[in-house]
Design a protein around this nucleic acid. Sequence first.
DNA 1: TTGTACGCGTTATCAG
DNA 2: CTGATAACGCGTACAA
Lengths: 325, 325
Amino acid sequence: MAGVSTATVSRVLNEPERVSAKTRSRVEAAVAHFDYTPHFGGRALASNRTNTVGAVIPTMENAIFARGLQALQEALAADGVTLVVATSNYDPEREAEQIRVLLGRGVDGLVLIGEARDPALYAMLERRGMPFVLVWSWRPDCPWPCVGFDNRAAARAMAERVLDLGHRHIAMIAGVTRGNDRAAARVEGVRDALAGRGLRLDESNLIETPYHLEAGAQAARRLLADSPRPTAIVCGNDVLAAGALTEVRGLGLKAPADVSVTGFDDIDLAHALDPSLTTVHVPHRRMGQAAAKLLLRLRAQKGETTNVVFETALVERGSLAPPGK
Amino acid sequence: MAGVSTATVSRVLNEPERVSAKTRSRVEAAVAHFDYTPHFGGRALASNRTNTVGAVIPTMENAIFARGLQALQEALAADGVTLVVATSNYDPEREAEQIRVLLGRGVDGLVLIGEARDPALYAMLERRGMPFVLVWSWRPDCPWPCVGFDNRAAARAMAERVLDLGHRHIAMIAGVTRGNDRAAARVEGVRDALAGRGLRLDESNLIETPYHLEAGAQAARRLLADSPRPTAIVCGNDVLAAGALTEVRGLGLKAPADVSVTGFDDIDLAHALDPSLTTVHVPHRRMGQAAAKLLLRLRAQKGETTNVVFETALVERGSLAPPGK
DNA sequence: TTGTACGCGTTATCAG
DNA sequence: CTGATAACGCGTACAA
């Protein structure tokens, strides 16, 4: 209809500046008239690029990942890259499978949560030259490109604050640590802090449980049955803390007077609770944006991999107070 | 390596039963050895299928869509179909743009939230023969394939319950109704109920606001400044209700003694709040599954379109009580 | 500035 | 049951 070759159409779509204004407008008119869209497969085949990156997260049902993911997606979209999200339900095997699915879909980059996974998987990604970025996790000498924060140090800081307020009988509700370095690092951080005062975390005051409200409530019930009762419960994330707070109330106790509760992540929920939740603020949005930036750079082969670490901040609200107060 | 033609490899991958066991195992060995993955673009080009469906939701940052989306994704994955999610931020123009992006990405099906959108968009989808399903929304004679629930009737039932308890001065915090038929239907439902008792919703007792905690809190502040104070605030969703409850507390009032608050959706948050939230339960997971099923059927055969409607249920918790009690 | 011609990796058709 | 071969729609050297 525009009276030009397909090559010219291709140029109008991809490098409009290389086409004369007159020809261009003719082609553009035809495109508009037929509501033409380039065929994705043809494009991917010829250019060997899909402008798609994949992310595998544990679950969408949890606000923890939503904010960061939204930011990641927006930042990628600004560069014309589409994000495909798959979920693993915190299962390492399922994660590996989803990574394969995404590779099979021709993603040209990958965003993965945390660092703990089979070395063979990393080897495979490198063999294929597949760019990837690890998020939510960071430690001093992580060998892979990563954008995250120091879960261990943050958890330690929180636990130290609890200790500083005078708590000595401290329990923890952690996420399941198998295949989850963030959950494991948070436990270690609390251990670090306790060890500094000659205290320990053992089976009687540490429960690992899935990240659900109900699981948090159950864990709190078990911990609070101990006698003497712990005066503070440090939780591996805000969802567990919310569950714990609900249970504290259900048992007829008051937080923080009878027992303090702390969270981790600072999701919206944290300040809708009563008492509002003292927690660790994580800059999810900035993390998502930074991950996008790094991945786009890796994809463009712009050389060296700079890891990015974010600071977390302790947010004091109402759920933590000195013991017996 | 297997000493066969590419055609045979293709058959081993797609219709293994049509290949002799011996040849098949040779090919499979080669596939495993080279860690071979079919090229997505080539496949899409030759078969004109991507096994990808797209969804455009308002936002991922809100738990409202997370559960349904997760279920949708799981159900699609069971059929080897990948879900690509885009977000519109409740902006109709942005939604249209995202739909174009997804079409450009070669999705072979679309899941859209709600029904309100430009007729030209529907015309375009039909012209292209693009299968699509509307979710979260349903009304008796929706002309498009949809899987949802009757927002209006559900909101009406909630408001009637509030009235039955004796409330007469009722306010509402609604979502922004522009381009959002669910939010609009919920307002209409409340209006229906009030009209049945000779009451109305006007500017002084209806506030439209984005679906955020903080916005809910602000709206509640304005509504509660009215005198006499409303005895009940009906909210367009749980997030708004959570914000309202926080503000009620912030103002030194007690819910439900001084003012009752109701929500909509029944997200997890609802029973972590204190008082726990009386709300409308929406079967998000089943809705997501049903949407997947319908879309897959539409994609497979241009068969008859059966709309699916789900029942909602009023869940009575602590935030609603008779006035002055 | 534009057109020609080829190749990308797969599937589908048809012949053997 | 298997192989040869022609599409599929696009990007891109290269030529004009």
